[in-house]
Nucleic acid binder design. Structure first.
Length: 506
RNA sequence: GGCGCAUUGGUGUAGUUGGUUAACACGCUGCCCUCUCAAGGCAGAGAUCACGGGUUCGAGUCCCGUAUGCGCUACCA
């Protein structure tokens, strides 16, 4: 039988990075083994589900390069099937109607409520099988139902026994029936609940392997019980360790903000392949030590056997702009930016420049070769795509800012530069065949004539031409910027005015 | 309260059926390179493998207990 896996997010917000990783692993597993990767939107919570989040989930998958097979399944559309299944179980005596009035539950005190109830039950000697409606006769149950009395539907779990399944990641799992309550299948308003819906849909979709977060590990026993009640073969399960925040807590939007949202990484200049690569390494490791893996390689290398069991920490530092997300993710992004085929990078750079009104149409034809060279030069020390429009702005526009620290370090400390640099501009203008080499020769000669160190002129030029203290080899910059712009910028008074402004005098 | 899962340097991980100085990547420190910053090269700091008991000639690797964390325990998903 061929492999069928699914990714089943609920559309109640952005695509969470933990969910994104589940999607990735499912996708890799399917692609590796020639199976199908299906998408199911679990929108049964109609109040919280939005079309917008459904769209963002689809966009997110697309961004990561994860394509899905077949039509998207919307779980809400299957509710009639879920109800039918519950009714069938009632008819077969495997489920029963519970006429106990619905209790009010408060989300905030839910955990305490559970513990309290557990203590009370222990004190009273009641257990999970003590529901008075468990053994109500079918006639009586039908009579009360038809008379309009509200009821929930619960699965009737045998008094004695154990469930077991072999988790591909966590190994053999066992649980006593006494630990599992008669779970509710249908709410008293007829709304099907999670465990029922998942099982029915997975059966319906022919899912062979359920690969999902470890938070469902103990729920799985209930689902196994449901498969058995339904007389359906139980799929294989593979639970994934969780991704935790630096304080080892659960990652949540409310507490941790946008770092947990996949779209953040897109919006802050991540190359999809880099983030995907990083995500793959959270909880999984390849058999080879190589860690930079493209989609092809990931697919080839991927194996459920390589998934670990311990939760991993996503190490970001909220208030530190330099380490706003995991260092390794940032490093990996830089690695991709500097080493990926330039033709694949160019469209991303284009999008970034365009978004900042730095894109010019000639980059598409006449200046295409120039753009390629410029990008190849500056990408070497960039960490995100954002850098192309921020640190790299001076390469694409004459309207760029001078970093105060650069001005201080490279211009202000040597007053003679105010005359030296324009004078050097004269020399540069004389150069016949302008190139990195000829610019270097001109600069070094000029430095000799003036009796100053070449480094002084080089660093000063860097700041005059790019507004920054750091950047590529200066002679390459001259060449990329070209003779005219180089000369012009060396003559410009802008940074000197900037100094005057900063110092408050003229 | 109950049940389950986990625990290797700051972080992500490797450590195949127990066998010498616990490996790799990120990060960190120093040096080299150099016009700056990266990249790259070299060197280095950092782990009594959560703790305590066992089993064994020998345990990160097996067993028991403890602690801590996480998860589930809901007419949420």
């Amino acid at each position: 039988m061929s492999i069928r896996v699914r990714f089943a997010p609920s559309p109640t917000g952005y695509l969470h990075i933990g969910a994104a990783r589940s999607a990735l692993f499912n996708w890799l597993y399917a692609r590796k083994l020639g199976g199908k990767f299906l998408l199911r939107i679990e929108d049964t919570d109609l109040q919280r589900s939005t079309d917008e989040s459904t769209r963002s989930i689809i966009d997110g998958l697309k961004w990561l390069g994860l394509d899905y097979d077949e039509e998207i399944v919307f779980q809400s559309a299957n509710a009639p099937k879920h109800r039918a299944a519950a009714n069938r179980l009632i008819a077969e005596g495997k489920a029963y109607r519970d006429f106990t009035p619905k209790e009010k539950r408060d989300d905030a005190t839910m955990k305490e409520g559970i513990a309290e109830r557990a203590r009370a039950h222990a004190a009273e000697g009641t257990d999970h099988r003590s529901n008075p409606f468990r053994d109500l006769s079918a006639e009586e149950s039908d009579r009360r139902a038809t008379s309009g009395e509200p009821f929930a539907v619960r699965l009737k779990i045998a008094k004695e026994g154990r469930t077991h399944f072999d988790d591909i990641v966590y190994g053999p799992q066992e649980r006593n029936y006494s630990e599992i309550e008669d779970l509710v299948l249908l709410r008293s308003d007829g709304h099907p609940l999670y465990n029922l819906s998942v099982v029915i849909d997975d059966i319906e979709m022919g899912i062979t392997h359920v690969i999902r977060g470890q938070d469902h590990l103990t729920n799985t026993h209930k689902q196994v019980l449901l498969y058995e009640a339904l007389n359906t073969p139980v799929p294989q399960f593979a639970h994934l360790p969780l991704i935790l925040a630096p304080n080892k807590g659960k990652l949540s939007k409310r507490k941790h903000g946008e770092v947990v949202s996949l779209t953040t990484y897109r919006d802050r200049g991540f190359v999809p392949a880099a983030f995907r690569n990083f995500l793959a390494l959270l909880g999984w490791s390849p058999s080879e030590t190589k860690e930079i893996l493209g989609l092809q390689e990931l697919t080839q290398e991927f194996s459920l056997a390589g998934i670990g069991r311990a939760n991993s920490i996503f190490n970001f530092q909220e208030n530190d702009p330099r380490h706003w997300t995991d260092d390794k993710a940032l490093w990996m992004n830089a690695e991709y930016i500097r080493t990926m085929p330039i033709d694949e990078l160019l469209p991303m750079v284009k999008a970034e420049l365009r978004a900042n009104r730095l894109w010019r149409d000639e980059y598409e034809d006449d200046a295409r070769e120039w753009l390629t060279r410029a990008v190849a030069l500056i990408r070497q020390r960039f960490h995100t795509l954002k850098d192309f429009s921020e640190q790299g702005r001076a390469y694409f526009s004459d309207d760029f800012d001078f970093e105060p620290t650069a001005v201080n370090k490279n211009l202000k400390k040597e007053p003679r530069l105010k005359e030296l640099l324009p004078a050097f501009a004269e020399k540069l203008e004389q150069v016949d065949t302008f190139s990195a080499e000829s610019a270097e020769a001109a600069l070094r000669q000029f430095a000799d004539e003036q009796g100053v160190k070449a480094g002084l002129l080089i660093n000063g030029s860097r700041t005059m031409l790019t507004g920054q203290a750091v950047g590529p080899s200066m002679f390459e910059v001259f060449e990329i910027l070209g003779q005219n712009r180089s000369v012009e910028r060396l003559r410009s008074g802008v940074p000197w005015f900037a100094i005057a402004d900063a110092l408050g005098d003229v």
